[in-house]
Design a protein around this nucleic acid. Structure first.
Lengths: 143, 143
DNA sequence: TTAAGTGCAAAATCTTTGCAAATGT
DNA sequence: ACATTTGCAAAGATTTTGCACTTAA
C-alpha cells in the first residue's frame, strides 16, 4: 500500500508540517508496527520528544494510526487501513508480537467472530499472538 | 473458584508473607481483573508501592497471575487458572475491557484457533474485546 | 541462623503541561 | 495576520535500584 503523507494530513484536517510528514514516513517505511521508543531513537535529532507524543496522539485520535500495546505497556504504531475514522478503527486483523525481536506484525488474518455473553456489547476486538516470527525462527535454526 | 493464598504460595515456592497474602486476597475478591493503580489505592496503607511491584512481578513470573495491558498501557491482573505455570500461561479466554468503567472481565469464552502464516509460531494468543459491559449498559439505558 | 522479603530513599524513565517562538494557511 | 504547531523547561507520574532492617522457614 502506497502512502502519501501530505494527502493523508489534508484528509484529516491536520496542517502539514515537516515533523508530521517525517513521522508518517517513518511508520510507513516498514510493514510492521514500530514502537514509540524506536521512533524516538530514529527521529530524536529531528523531532522533540514532546512533539512526537503530540503527533502520535493526534494521529491516533484522527484514525490515521492505530496503537497496539505490547506486554510491557509500550505503545506501537501502524498505519490504519483507509477505512478507519475518528469514530471507528477497522483494525480487525491479528497482530503478531515476536517475543524475540519484539516486532509487532499486522498479519493478513482476520479476527474470527466472537460470541459475546448477554449484556456485553463489543465495538472492537483485538487479537495478538505471541511467539517467534519468521525472521527470528530462521536465525535461530541457523545457529 | 475458591482460592487459598497460603496454598498457592507454597505451590510456587514463595514464602508466605502478610503482604503477599493480601495481594492475592484483593485480586481474588472480584471476578474481574484489577488494575495496578487500583491495587495501590486499596493496599497503599498496608504495602509499599515498590513491594507491590515486586510481588506482582513475582506472581506473573510464577504463573500465579496473568497480566492484561489495557489501551493506556496500564497493567491489570487476574488469577490464572490452576494449569498455568512458569513456562506457559493458559490464558486462552477472551477478555472484555469496558470502555466506560474500564474494568477488564475474563469471559468464559475460548479464543478460536487461529491459523498462523508460514514461519510464524505462536505460543500464546490474547484476545480482548472493547465495548460496554453488562453493568454499564444497564446504567446507561436507565438514564 | 540465614536466605528471602520489605520499606525507604533516591535514581532513572516516561508522560504531561505551560508558554514563547516559529510555521503553515 | 492568525490560529496551530513546535521546542524547551519544568512539573508530575511511573518504574527501577541499592541497601539496611525485618521476617519466615
Amino acid at each position: 500500500m502506497k502512502i502519501d503523507p501530505i494527502h493523508i494530513l489534508k484528509d484529516h484536517d491536520l496542517k502539514h508540517t515537516k515533523q508530521r510528514v517525517r513521522v508518517l514516513e517513518e511508520i510507513a517505511m516498514d510493514s510492521v508496527a514500530i514502537s514509540q521508543p524506536e521512533l524516538e531513537k530514529k527521529l530524536g535529532k529531528e523531532i522533540d520528544r514532546v512533539t512526537l507524543y503530540r503527533i502520535l496522539n493526534a494521529y491516533e485520535e484522527k484514525g490515521i494510526l492505530h496503537k497496539i500495546m505490547d506486554m510491557n505497556g509500550t505503545a506501537n504504531y501502524a498505519i490504519c487501513s483507509p477505512s478507519c475514522s475518528v469514530d471507528h478503527h477497522h483494525d480487525e486483523h491479528v497482530h503478531f508480537n515476536c517475543t524475540n525481536c519484539l516486532k509487532i506484525y499486522c498479519l493478513d488474518v482476520m479476527i474470527p467472530k466472537i460470541k459475546m455473553p448477554a449484556g456485553f456489547t463489543a465495538s472492537t476486538v483485538n487479537t495478538t499472538a505471541y511467539g517467534i516470527c519468521e525472521k527470528c525462527s530462521v536465525l535461530q535454526s541457523g545457529n
